[in-house]
């Protein structure tokens, strides 16, 4: 496919502003990599993503455990969650700028809002799906309420939480770009938009390739992590098939 693209651009007289050739993109990529420019923007994007994601994970897992486990917390928070969940995180970007300026705060806020709900909802579902038999076994072995939550419900919800974290991470990669396009002076999202303004479509492609590659890598890491942490899940799957 790359060869067809390359040939089409070279011999088809396509304007590189519309579609640069793969070799040109590769060249730009290498030079930006060597100059450290690419690393600079990527690091900024990843740092914002990491902070927002970490906040969402900490909040989502904690609240999810509470809502999944305590009736009272569930009664109080469930309507609130249902109400706030459908809000599009992208639509929040202007508000975020208004409230937090164009610094770190606004991006972190948007990322956190976008990644919080999948983590929260998966954690709640995980806790609620705890096998009643496991709970009975643990109670009859002397476990109290708190111990049940931490040593039975949390580990049995862990694969669900992991799925939530994985989904949230891929959403995070989408949203960080959008938020940097609106309000930033660096980062891959800013790089992509700014290069388009100055007709450097090759850099636009470099940005797209970089963010996609990083997203792919992160998801692969999450998958490996899941395999390492939950060996019994795969054993169950292979038994069932």
């Amino acid at each position: 496919m790359l060869a067809v693209w390359e040939a089409a651009v070279r011999f088809g007289d396509v304007d590189p502003i519309i579609l640069p050739s793969p070799s040109m993109i590769a060249e730009t990529f290498v030079s930006m990599l060597l100059s450290g420019e690419l690393a600079f923007h990527a690091a900024n994007s990843l740092a914002r993503l990491a902070i927002g994601y970490a906040l969402a994970a900490a909040g989502g897992i904690t609240l999810g455990l509470l809502v999944g486990w305590f009736r009272l917390a569930s009664d109080f928070f469930t309507p609130l969650i249902e109400l706030t969940r459908p809000i599009s995180p992208i639509a929040l970007i202007p508000l975020a700028i208004l409230w937090f300026g164009i610094g770190l705060g606004s991006k972190v806020f948007v990322i956190t809002m976008a990644t919080f709900f999948p983590i929260l909802l998966n954690t709640i579902a995980g806790v609620k799906s705890t096998d009643q038999l496991m709970i009975r076994a643990a109670r009859s072995l002397g476990a109290g309420h708190m111990r049940l939550l931490l040593t039975v419900s949390l580990p049995s919800a862990a694969p669900f939480i992991h799925t939530g974290l994985r989904i949230a991470l891929s959403i995070g990669f989408i949203v960080i770009i959008a938020s940097e396009m609106v309000a930033a002076q660096n980062g891959l999202g800013w790089l992509i938009l700014d290069s388009e303004r100055v007709y450097r479509t090759d850099i636009v492609f470099v940005g797209i390739v970089t963010i996609s590659g990083l997203g792919l890598l992160a998801d692969y890491g999450m998958r490996l992590l899941g395999r390492a942490l939950f060996p019994w899940i795969r054993a169950k799957e292979s038994q069932n098939t």
Partner: peptide, 29 residues
């Protein structure tokens, strides 16, 4: 409570704990 231990047909072992850590569960509690 631990004075009355129950064993189920479906074993009810904790899949996220090794064999020895399953056995230790009640002692931890």
């Amino acid at each position: 409570g631990p004075e009355l231990a129950i064993v189920f047909q479906e074993y009810a072992l904790f899949p996220w704990r090794s064999v020895i850590r399953n056995v230790e569960y009640g002692l931890e509690a």
